[in-house]
Simulated scan of single mutants.
Amino acid sequence: MDSKYFLRLENNNFGFVVEGVHKILDTDISITLEDYNRFFELQNQGKQFRSKENPTGKGLFDYIEEYTLEVIEVPTKPTELERIAALEMALLEVL
């Protein structure tokens, strides 16, 4: 017997459930095995996904979309050597 795969959406999060393994809810969305496998192939390639605000159809990728994480640079404290070098440069400017 082939298992059926479902997309479960909860509070802007999503996950997958499989018939025979999980309890299937009325709100779960049936998806194809091909879409299920494709999602994990793409995720293994480092792609990130999130729920769409407005689904565009009935397939898995109509409910989720790829997105790129925004990288936020965190300022770092200068190392001891960097601080000493800055002080030396300041002293050289004074002399």
Rank of each mutant, 00 (worst) to 15 (best):
N13W: 11
I84S: 09
E34T: 08
R8F: 08
G15C: 11
K58N: 09
Y67R: 03
E80K: 14
L9K: 02
Y5T: 06
L25P: 03
I72K: 04
F16R: 14
S51N: 03
E93D: 02
Q45E: 14
I31H: 08
I29M: 03
N54T: 12
L69C: 02
I72W: 09
I31N: 03
A90K: 14
G20E: 11
N54E: 06
K4E: 13
H22A: 08
R83L: 12
L92K: 11
D62Q: 07
T27R: 01
E66V: 05
A90S: 07
P75C: 05
L87E: 07
I72S: 00
G20D: 11
F61S: 09
Y63W: 07
V21A: 13
N11C: 11
N37T: 14
L33Y: 10
D2Q: 15
M1V: 05
I24T: 05
M89K: 06
D26P: 12
G59V: 10
N54A: 01
F61T: 08
E65D: 03
T76N: 14
F49V: 05
S3I: 00
N11D: 05
V17H: 15
R50Y: 07
G46F: 14
Q43A: 13
L60H: 05
D62K: 03
I31E: 03
E82P: 02
E66Y: 03
Q43Y: 14
K58V: 04
R50C: 03
A86R: 12
L91H: 12
N54G: 04
E19C: 10
L9S: 05
L9T: 09
D28V: 00
K77M: 14
V21R: 15
E88R: 11
F40A: 09
F14K: 11
Y63V: 10
K77P: 01
